[in-house]
Simulated scan of single mutants.
Amino acid sequence: MFEQFSSGYYLGVLYVEPGEERAALNVEDHEAVNRQLYGASEGIERLDSPLVMKLDGTHFPVRGAEDVPAGTLTVPEPLVDDGLPDRREVLLARPERAGQLLKYAGWRPADAA
């Protein structure tokens, strides 16, 4: 689904469509990407931690959701443009970069004290 793009990102093509308040991928896609790209690396090692994606210059956390079709990324209304829904190139932050972005945004695992 994603391939190496640069030192900070992977590149993938997903069907992008308007969604709810938070960006989301199909839960099985989310876990597969998390396992494949983040699972064995330092930074983010939990399958339930958000992925960090970039679309049109904007970074955002992406959660897994049961109601999202496979191969689809739903994005909140502020990220929607006139060209959606459509297949789009999406950047996925590499583990180190994702960890930094999540930390700066104040994200902490639910079981962290």
Rank of each mutant, 00 (worst) to 15 (best):
R22Q: 12
H59L: 15
V90Y: 06
A23H: 01
G8D: 14
N26D: 13
A32R: 11
G64I: 09
V27T: 11
K103G: 02
D48G: 10
R63N: 10
E21F: 04
P109C: 11
L102H: 05
R97C: 02
L91P: 00
P78T: 12
Q100G: 04
E20V: 01
D56S: 14
H30M: 07
F5Y: 15
F5K: 03
S41Q: 12
R88P: 03
F2Q: 05
E77P: 01
Y38W: 08
V16I: 08
T72Q: 10
A113W: 10
L51F: 09
E3D: 06
D56L: 11
F5D: 09
P76S: 10
A23M: 02
Y15R: 10
L11K: 13
V33I: 15
A65P: 00
P69I: 10
G8Q: 09
N34L: 12
D86L: 05
P109S: 15
G83I: 07
H30T: 03
S41T: 08
V52S: 01
A65I: 04
E31S: 07
D81T: 15
G39P: 00
G83T: 15
W107R: 06
V16Q: 03
R87I: 07
V16G: 01
G106Q: 10
V90P: 00
K54Q: 15
S49H: 10
V13L: 03
S41E: 13
V27C: 00
D29K: 04
N34G: 06
L84C: 05
Y10K: 03
L51V: 11
L25A: 03
A32S: 09
Y15F: 15
G106C: 09
F2N: 02
R63D: 13
V16Y: 04
L14E: 05
D82I: 13
L84T: 04
R108W: 08
T74Q: 13
G19W: 04
H59M: 10
P61M: 12
E31I: 09
L47S: 07
P69M: 10
F60G: 02
T58L: 07
A110F: 12
E28Q: 12
V52E: 04
L102R: 01
V52I: 15
L73T: 07
T74W: 01
Y38I: 06
Y9L: 08
G71H: 04
R35D: 13
G99C: 08
L101G: 05
F60L: 14
K103V: 02
D111V: 12
A105Q: 14
E3Q: 10
L25N: 01
E89Q: 09
A113E: 15
L14T: 06
F2S: 02
N34A: 14
V75Q: 08
V33E: 04
A24G: 02
P69K: 15
G39F: 01
R63K: 14
R46Y: 12
L37I: 07
L37C: 01
D81E: 09
A110V: 11
L55A: 09
Q100H: 13
D81Q: 06
E31D: 05
A112F: 10
L79G: 02
M53W: 06
Q36R: 15
